[in-house]
Amino acid sequence: MTWRERTDFWSEHVTSYQGRMDYGYPPTDDFRAGIICQRTDIYQLSMFWSDTIKYARTASQVRHDPGEDYRFLLPVAGELVLRQGDQEVRLTPGAGCFLTFAAPFEMLQDASLRALIMSIPAREVNTRLNRSSPLTAGLDLTSGLGRVVGDMLTGLHEERDTLTGGRFDAVSDRLVELLCMLAAGDDRPTAPGHLDEVEAVVRRYIREHAADPDMTGTTMAQALGWSLRQVQLALHHAGTTPRELIGEERLRLVRDRLRAPVYRHMTITELAYASGFSSASALSTAFRRRFGISPREMRHAGPQPM
């Protein structure tokens, strides 16, 4: 196959998956590329790689081949540059972004690029973010919620041969929810549905880390990849605060441990420290205020529910 045949095949191949674009190939004697795709009627996830190339979607192509759906791009090797409107984003492994096909753009990649690209219906993004989004600045997928999202995305690709279409869509639904949480910054409106999602994730995180004595609203927000303001807003919507929720979960943890035979060897002081409290007296005061009896009295009462 000649260079022209290979590049023509690649252009047609990518167009069939992604929509009409222009392709700029360097003047070389060879061109190599590949793509692995999994898709249903709702979502599509592809791993692609190629030699250096420039993709461009023009205003004319947007008019004649409308495509409002989003693409989420995540390099796993190499680098790519995206330009849309007056924004430019340079992506390397660990950074991803949303790209809309409803507006012109340019994408330049080097020959070392290997990246995941997920096609997402526009309604799934616009409804959650309460807006129509052009190119979104690079999202950090190296820690907190971002790392969870990145692991889910790569895992979804790696397990493509073991997932049914229904399971692929179910995982994709949850993945898009988390991506939108990650993309929702302080300068963007927060829809009620998003507040509920934030609250659910925050509650789960606090429950799982209640015993950490260093956990605060700030450290918890950082671990999840959100701002403290977002977390406070979501919990205020639910009638509580980070401090109150952390305290409540620690008290529940102590109560459950007081009733469990496996913790009977621990003193009240040891239970206090092991459950995130600064002292036995701090535990006793908060515990009596919450449950009406002291930790020692609950332990002696046995496993009966309150």
Rank of each mutant, 00 (worst) to 15 (best):
F9Q: 11
H13I: 01
Q18N: 11
R20T: 08
R32W: 12
Q38W: 10
D41P: 08
Y43I: 11
Y43L: 13
Q44W: 15
M47P: 00
T52A: 15
I53R: 08
T58M: 03
R63G: 04
P66N: 15
G67W: 15
L82P: 01
C97Q: 10
F101R: 13
F101Q: 13
F105N: 00
L108M: 11
L108N: 07
Q109A: 08
Q109F: 04
S112D: 12
L113K: 00
A115Q: 04
S119M: 14
P121R: 09
T127G: 00
N130Y: 04
S133C: 06
G138W: 11
G138D: 10
S143Q: 07
S143M: 06
R147M: 10
V149P: 00
L153Q: 02
L153P: 01
L153C: 02
G155K: 02
H157S: 06
E159T: 11
G165L: 09
G165R: 12
F168A: 04
V176M: 03
A184W: 04
P192E: 15
G193K: 12
V198L: 14
A200S: 13
R203E: 14
R204F: 15
H209T: 14
D214T: 14
T218H: 07
T219E: 06
W226S: 04
L228V: 09
E244W: 11
L253Y: 06
T267N: 13
S278G: 12
L283C: 02
T285H: 12
G302R: 12
